[in-house]
Design a binder for these strands. Structure first.
Lengths: 232, 232, 232, 232
DNA sequence: GATGAATGAGCATTCATTCAT
DNA sequence: TATGAATGAATGCTCATTCAT
């Protein structure tokens, strides 16, 4: 009410009670409870009571932080997406050896996407996408789509360097991604596979996928350079 | 339990009334109603009343034929799977021109899998897969998996004929399928795409996919034959 | 199940279970429970659970018979209105002695409108009219308004017979009704009076009200006839 | 309880901070917020949060000044009553031309009582009267009843002057008031009329009402004087 | 064996009230 | 003393399931 101290900064460090719906700790607590319940049961089957119990906050409090069930779910997915796709594309930022980069990136991508946690999250989004299509769309747009764009950029760079020749880069990027996941995504999401593929399996798939990709799109120059560096 | 006594109701013209939950006509009738409702609304949003109405049978009767909503859904999916993947693989049965066959098969596959109806069904299965993992597994196993096996056979035939050279045929088959769907499956299932891709788009993707596949795995012999038939 | 007997008539007398939402006994039971609760607590404060308990039927059943709380309340009011205003206007149907008829009618009207039960019902409607104005409007329209129209007809008859002379018959009818209730309605509805006025009190008020009304609107002819019949 | 100690907070410039729930300024502020919300939404639909916002005080503070929602509402009605009926009866204080005075008073009364705001307030009181009968009673007693007494006084004055002859003055006063409202009150309170009647309509009703009243109760002397002043 | 009326636990959401700060 | 974040009982309503007919 009076004179906040002079060193009051961008971060409000006062120990005072945070404003309604503003306490990030409580927010995180709710999201964490929601994660457990939504991931475990799916959107429809999850009840706000379950979340209340799991989060250890009262019903009313949840509704202070989130307008309704749908918005809470969206917030969770937003978080989840952030976590999932974080750092996934860094390896594409510094252009070095083409094949190695593609393998490294493809491996990281496949591991992430087929990890148990991420598969469950994706299943939940897919299940909810039926009733809230925008939600699924938003998830795709800000997750996989963004990644796709990064791949396109990277491929363009390789084309500029004369290492690749791709008639339709956009399509090429999709092909690359799919080759890295060959079969895994569908197997996981339909729970035909009940646990994530091993690193070895993924590496085998990705190596082969990259091989196919490069055989199709690699230029003479690329193969010449590869032979040269191999004999070196 | 089967033969009801001779004084069986005059109205029942079939040979003896079937035991409770045993009449296959009624069963089909229920499944048909369930199909319309589940596909239209998804598992959670579908109400047993809707199904009752759509199937034209009473609530009680449904519960004689199926333990509960979940079991009815499972039965439907079992059926649906059969319908979806039926005839999809016929084109692979008669080996003719390799590239043309692959394109034709790939196109049919992509159209089917990305059709609104099938995407809906898959979304529902995925959504439910979390709670009933066997359901998703069974769906995959008897649907996509069986198709995959057909592709493997076909590729083996092509290898036998010296047209392809594939180190890991199983993996190659996955790669082929994924190349035909490049990006579409994920876009559809997350409802980033809200309607099925056009035939033209699919054809473009499949043509490119087959091209990549053949560049990677086609033998000298294959390309020689292709050049020959082209110049003919 | 087949062949309802030949004498099946307009009234379905079968003892079979009535269709959903069609059993008039159950309907009456629900309405009766609703009456007790709504009248006791008012629209908002009455809970569907209370009504469930009071009516001795399950929640679901109420919702089979009535779309929602509001509609249940409307149905109750509809009934209530019917009960309240039934037979109230019969006395106006056979034109006899003017003054006597007016007194008789006015007395009946006042007794009805100020009876504890009716006052409570009106209070409930008024309380609800705030949130559901159409409801109050409908109550007025089909209750008091209809009565008002009957009074207008009656007064027109009297005018035609040369017994009354009223510049604005519509207004005259309102004046008559208000004179019969002089003060009572407001006193009752605000619960300034906690019990219904006595018959004696009402008779006194009505007699006086009719007197005022006739002094204002009675014709020479009317008074002449009255004098004549008095001296007879 | 009143005198807080000398070291009272520097910020409080008033003579000692009032004891909890004792500051009349804050009390008025709360009542004012409550007025806006209760009148706008009715008792049930008004939320304490709305009032908090409208009054600009905290939830806790309201609960220091008023035990609960009901009590706050009661306090408001107490106030409101004062406001509504204030100045309504001034016109009766100076006896001048009888007919004109009655018309003027009747018009003012009808306009007030049928104004949207006042109807709203009355509806709310009526709605609540069932649960808190004393509230309605007190409202009537200190509002309409007090007005009624003023009318009685005025009529007695007119009787004393030989202008009126009324066997039962108390009843006459009720009759007069009702004649001025002929039909309007019930129409408004049941929301059959959704907006207040026009000044013209009220004037017509009141003029007619006063006419009826005077025809019934006016003395020879009154009519003689009126004829005289008319011909003057 | 079939029916569909009835059930009541369950849902998402609101809001009067409390109490730590 | 004043605050407003947190509470959780209560709301209207739905729907999978049961069981008397």
């Amino acid at each position: 009410m009076v004179d906040t101290t002079a060193d009051s900064d961008l971060l409000d460090l006062r120990k005072g009670r945070p404003a309604a719906g503003q306490d990030p700790v409580k927010r995180a607590q709710i999201i964490e409870g929601a994660r457990r319940v939504f991931i475990d049961k799916g959107f429809e089957a999850a009840s706000m009571n379950d979340i209340t119990r799991e989060a250890g906050v009262s019903k009313g409090t949840i509704y202070v932080y989130f307008e309704n069930k749908e918005e809470l779910f969206e917030a969770l997915i937003e978080e989840e997406r952030g976590t999932i796709f974080k750092n996934m594309y860094e390896v594409l930022d510094h252009f070095e050896d083409l094949r190695k980069t593609l393998v490294k990136f493809g491996t990281g991508l496949s591991i992430k996407i087929t990890s148990a946690k991420v598969i469950q999250a994706q299943r939940t989004v897919v299940g909810a996408a039926d009733r809230i299509p925008e939600l699924g769309a938003r998830f795709y747009e800000r997750g996989p789509k963004r990644g796709h764009d990064k791949v396109v950029s990277f491929l363009n760079e390789a084309i500029a360097r004369g290492l690749l020749e791709i008639p339709d880069v956009d399509l090429g990027a999709y092909q690359f991604t799919e080759l890295c996941l060959a079969g895994l995504f569908r197997q996981c999401i339909f729970s035909y596979r009940t646990k994530a593929p091993s690193q070895a399996e993924i590496e085998k798939i990705v190596t082969s996928g990259v091989d196919v990709f490069l055989k199709a799109y690699g230029t003479e120059k690329f193969f010449a350079e590869e032979r040269a560096s191999a004999s070196a």
